[in-house]
Computed example of a mutant assay.
Amino acid sequence: MNKFKSIFSKINDPRSDINKLHNLEDILLIGIISVICAADSWKDMETYAKAKVDFLRSFLDLPNGTPSDDTFNRVFSSIDSEQFETCFIDWVSNLIDITAGEVIPIDGKTLRGAKSNGKKSPFHMVSAWASKNNMVLGQVKVSEKSNEITAIPKLLELITVKGCVVTIDAMGCQKAIAETIIKQEADYILAVKENQKQLHQDILDEFRFGKTIDSHTDEDLGHGRIETRKCSVINDFKFIEDQDKWTGLESIVKVESIREFKNSDKPTETATRYYISSVKTDAKALQKMIRLHWGIENKLHWVLDVAFSEDASRKRAGNAAQNFSILSKIALNLLRKDKQTKQGLKGKRLKAAYNNNYLIKILGIKV
């Protein structure tokens, strides 16, 4: 907890001196603790703080009692979100141990509830996920007048990926992004679609005429379906134009999937996906790495919507949506760090709300 306080104390207080009834550190920590304990709104934060004021006083100052929902709203709406994100990334780097070969998927998610008057939501976050650690490494907001292509390099500059394999969908299949990853002494697997028309066509030609192709097939049975996936890899390719401009390029990959549904009239689904990679290994290993990319969808984005109600959130004032997203990810990381409690995240959040001893364990504090 001392390390946590020292990192987040770097955030500038946006309030004027006459409005400082509560310490910024107390507001930040109550915000984080209440979100761990199932708070999904500013009013929830106020309710939790009032109910647990004696417990909170055991490790917080609270010179003027607990903040109101308006105070939480004003503070988290005005805190510099880039500072908050930087502190979050700094804190995560002290929380987990990234080992060589870890797959780090990067993907974006729109905060759909933040839209107003039928307009497109202005809040789109790009996050990095540590597959082995099962935690969020960091996030950055995509600029309203930009897209993920500019946000991904910014995120890569903030996190440590040395020795890891970074996986990104087709939006991130850019020469500059590949170069950035290699410069950080990491490897990449980038999905290729027709946004890279020439590269996509070259890969099609390579698999059509290539002779030295390594392949691996596996089957996944469950949930009333059978999914067969064949991964094919070419390391010695001849038809890729300007391949030297794709820094570190070693492999091109094709994944063909067939999904059949048992006891159902639903038609068979087929899909073919293509990738480029700086990893030179066999088809079995590459197939495993590519499969791990979907962890960011299933274990982060889906969980944020289901367990933390992120898509239902209507926060949109100032930096509120962006900063509340960070609070949710801090809570998610701390709850995921607990490997002993055999409950889902919703159950863990409620347990932390009811049981101070469990919450202390999650926070790693001494009171």
Rank of each mutant, 00 (worst) to 15 (best):
E179F: 13
K175T: 11
N147A: 02
I181Q: 06
T160N: 15
T180F: 01
E148L: 11
N147C: 07
P153E: 11
V165H: 09
I182N: 04
A176D: 15
I181K: 11
G172M: 09
C173A: 08
K154V: 03
T167S: 14
I177A: 11
T167P: 10
K154P: 00
V165G: 08
L156Y: 01
I159D: 01
I159E: 04
T150Q: 15
L158K: 11
K154E: 07
A178S: 14
I159H: 07
T160F: 06
A178M: 14
L155P: 02
A176G: 05
E179G: 12
E179T: 13
C164G: 10
E157V: 12
T180P: 00
L156S: 02
A176Y: 09
I149N: 09
L155Q: 07
T150A: 12
K154L: 02
E157T: 15
I152P: 00
I159N: 05
Q174G: 07
I159Q: 06
D169W: 14
C173G: 00
V161Q: 10
K154D: 06
A178E: 14
A170C: 14
M171N: 06
E148N: 05
G172H: 06
V161R: 13
Q174N: 04
D169V: 13
V166W: 03
C173H: 06
I168D: 07
M171C: 09
A178Y: 14
C173E: 01
T167R: 12
K175G: 06
I168V: 14
E157W: 13
I182S: 08
I168T: 12
M171I: 12
K162G: 00
A151R: 08
N147F: 03
T180H: 08
K162E: 15
E148G: 03
P153N: 10
I182K: 14
E148T: 11
L156C: 05
A176K: 15
G163P: 06
I177C: 02
T150F: 03
I152T: 08
L155F: 03
L155M: 07
A176V: 06
C164I: 11
K162F: 00
T150C: 10
I181L: 11
I182R: 10
N147R: 05
C164R: 10
E179N: 15
V165N: 04
K175Q: 15
D169N: 13
T167F: 10
I168F: 12
C164Y: 08
A170V: 15
L158A: 03
E148H: 09
L158G: 01
V165Y: 03
V166L: 00
I181Y: 08
I149H: 05
K175L: 12
E157I: 10
V165D: 03
I149A: 02
I152E: 02
Q174L: 01
C173S: 00
I168L: 13
I182W: 06
T150G: 13
I149Y: 02
G163S: 04
A151L: 01
V166A: 00
E148M: 10
V166G: 00
V165P: 07
I159S: 04
A151D: 05
T167V: 09
M171F: 01
N147P: 08
I177L: 07
